[in-house]
Nucleic acid binder design. Sequence first.
DNA 1: ACGCCTTTGAAGTTT
DNA 2: AAACTTCAAAGGCGT
Length: 420
Amino acid sequence: MADSTAVPRENSPSISGGQLLRGFVDAFDSVQAQLKSGITQAVVPLTQINLLGPEGAGILKKHLEDATNSRFSLTVNAIANSVILMPIGPMPPKPSVTAQGVASAGKPSKGSNPKVPRPPNAFIIYRKDWHARVVAENPGLHNNAISVIIGRQWRAESETVRAAYTRRAEDMKEQHAIANPGYQYQPRKPSEKKKRMTKNKLAKLAAKAQENGIIDGSIAQQTLPDDFDPVAMLDQQLGACAANQPMEVSSFGNVPAAQPLTLNPTTEPFVLTFESNTQDYRGLAESLAEFNATHSYPNGPCENNSAIGAQPIANGQWLENVVQHDLPGVGFYLPDSEYPQNQDNGFASEQCNETQDHDPLVELARTAALEWEFDDFIDFNGEANTTRGRVDGQSGVQDLNSLLTQDNEADNSASAMQAT
DNA sequence: ACGCCTTTGAAGTTT
DNA sequence: AAACTTCAAAGGCGT
């Protein structure tokens, strides 16, 4: 059952102020370095975000927004086990600082070349953002295999992430239209498309097609139309044939194991609870209530509008609604009673490293438990209230800020705070 | 030097 | 209207 009443934590959090401070500075430095290098999004490992907790992640986002004068979204990528900080909408022009950092799309001054490339679609932007990372993780991997990996990752991505990229694509299309007035996409006709096809390759294709029963020899004896294009025909038919075959991605080499965003609904049913005592999050609470109303849970619907009980059956739909830390100060937790793995010690830190055989959503639930620990930690320095799962975002923010200014004394103050 | 390959999606073309 | 085609990015490979 989804009980949201106060239950005191048995264990004290295992994070010191020094660790927290260092984690925040490291994460912020990393994000800044990534963005300065021209990448349009910054990726922070989930482990680092776990250290910061929701408030810290919110502060990280806010510092980033202040530094760049742009809004950022903060989303979880379960497959990459990372949190992605991505600008929402176009980056504002900053001529006095880094004009070169603007995306290269639509640059008009390329000599006298009139060719204007198409604006990228959402997936192309996504692929560009992820290409370097996938290459780094899979050295020597062929680009085609990289496309397969990123394509699979894109399909497993939450609707929120894909929508964010769609917005970016729309923004870039608008900028493209402004930079190229009168531009219109003019694809060549198939007959105009250049073909590089040697006799040898054509023979191989024909042999393969005939072997698969796609065409037979009689086709050559038919009266052929003037625009008959055997190469295009073979391309198309072989392509269609290949599309029906299961793709053996593992044959591409060092490809990370597939981690589809699915959970078996019959195993490990749990309730993930969300609460906020801050009025700012009423909209989120309402959306969660809507989510509650349209989904079924093993323990019945949630009666509280400010709480969500989510059964992880729908490909990360709750990931979209809950685990996305778009709002600073939002906390969520996994009650021990609903999470058997936590019952021995009441704390999920040990299990959190065992990522090999677990579904990413389950792992995220564990990190959610970790974050709640952090919330608890924050609250101890503020009001000694701590209704279970209730997060006082404001006091958390203030505490972290004071930690940041206290610098070297953070460790001392942290040990004092850890007293339960 | 430049098309092909591989992915998704937008947009134009053909049926 | 549906089906089909090109082309955006990436970079190694083949011609």
